[in-house]
Design a protein around this nucleic acid. Structure first.
Lengths: 108, 108
DNA sequence: GGAGTATATCGTTTATCGACGATATACGGA
DNA sequence: TCCGTATATCGTCGATAAACGATATACTCC
């Protein structure tokens, strides 16, 4: 360890660990092409889609279900039960919140 | 497969596979708390930081180096060699581009 | 040329992810 | 009540990620 050349002092106070964790967790939910695609499809629908998402994407039903669970856990989508189907839709406020968190974290 | 209830037809033309892939790849680079933290630290610096990042974070030098490589590969940071150090800084245009890609993909 | 310094790479181990088929669940309707 | 349908969960396997210590690399300065 030597003295810094181009480093200003960093104040730990500006590090909000919870926010960082949330940003990372949500980014992880976006970190797969299939999930980006699913989100995009849902965002393009006025209402919601059922398991037709499975047909829109070349993956097994169980795989799609898992991707949807991850997106749901991240808060990016909502699931409305319409037996026997489930109607998924994007949660725009949470998507916007991610966007905001991203911008504010990195001072864009 | 049955007829849809709440699904409108989806046009594959609006699916830009390259963009989806890029969004996923960049999201993956953000999908770790240590990398979010590193980016945040760098974004808070006027210029750049050297390997002091290693000291700012409780991880081994080799681990931090790997995280930095991932961020660099994603285009989120720039590395300027100042032997024997390397000065890292955020690439704001790429961060902003991610933001834009995110917004436009999901129609926010 | 040799020593010192900062960063990158390698090799290993453990943990997590992604995909699938098979099966369970939870309901609506005949 | 039993059947069909849509979704969720389970178990497994191969692939990838994350962490570390040890070592290599690539310079600067004596």
């Amino acid at each position: 360890m030597t003295e810094n050349i181009c480093v200003t002092e960093f104040t730990p106070a500006s590090l909000n660990e919870e926010e960082e964790e949330k940003l990372a967790v949500q980014a992880k939910a976006l970190a797969h092409p299939a999930r980006v695609r699913l989100l995009k499809i849902m965002a393009a629908q006025p209402g919601c889609v059922g398991g037709d998402l499975v047909n829109s994407i070349g993956l097994a039903q169980s795989t799609v279900s898992e991707h949807l669970r991850i997106l749901k856990d991240a808060g990016f989508i909502l699931a409305e039960v319409q037996r026997p189907r489930i109607c998924y839709s994007v949660n725009r406020s949470e998507l916007k919140n991610f966007n905001f968190l991203f911008e504010s974290s990195f001072k864009l």
